[in-house]
């Protein structure tokens, strides 16, 4: 399992607040129902959308194919521990 605790909690709590807590405090009035539905659907769709992207990368079955220029550049700018392996 390549899942990490932090992002899953962060996003679930974030969209949970939007979709479950916020609707409880929706302003009273004729549009209360609409606001509640809007909030819940937003939270549900956005959470699931993020989750799919996250889960699709949890256990990568293929790796990216990159040219060596790009790899060198990545190693330098993204601060990977490439230097350790240099001659």
């Amino acid at each position: 399992m390549g899942a990490s605790f932090v992002p899953i909690t962060v996003f679930t709590v974030l969209w949970g607040i939007v979709g479950i807590v916020c609707p409880i405090f929706a302003p009273k009035g004729p549009n209360r129902g609409i606001i509640q539905v809007v909030l819940m659907l937003t939270a549900a769709t956005c959470w699931l959308f993020w989750l799919c992207a996250y889960m699709a990368q949890m256990n990568p079955l293929i790796g990216p194919r990159l040219s060596n220029d790009t790899l060198i550049w990545i190693a330098h700018t993204w601060g990977n521990p490439l230097e350790a392996g240099t001659k």
Binding site: G2, A3, S4, P7, Y54, Q57, M58, N59, P60, L61, I62, G63, P64, R65, L66, S67, N68, L71, I72, I74, A75, W78, N80, P81, L82, G85, T86, K87
Partner: peptide, 29 residues
């Protein structure tokens, strides 16, 4: 979540690489 596991020499020899998840993926998306 990906890093480059090769050293400079290998990088210079081959024009392109397919990163292997096992070697170059930190196992956290």
């Amino acid at each position: 979540a990906w890093f480059v596991p090769y050293d400079n020499e290998t990088l210079e020899k081959n024009p392109s690489f397919t990163l292997d998840p096992k070697a170059s993926y930190i196992n956290k998306p």
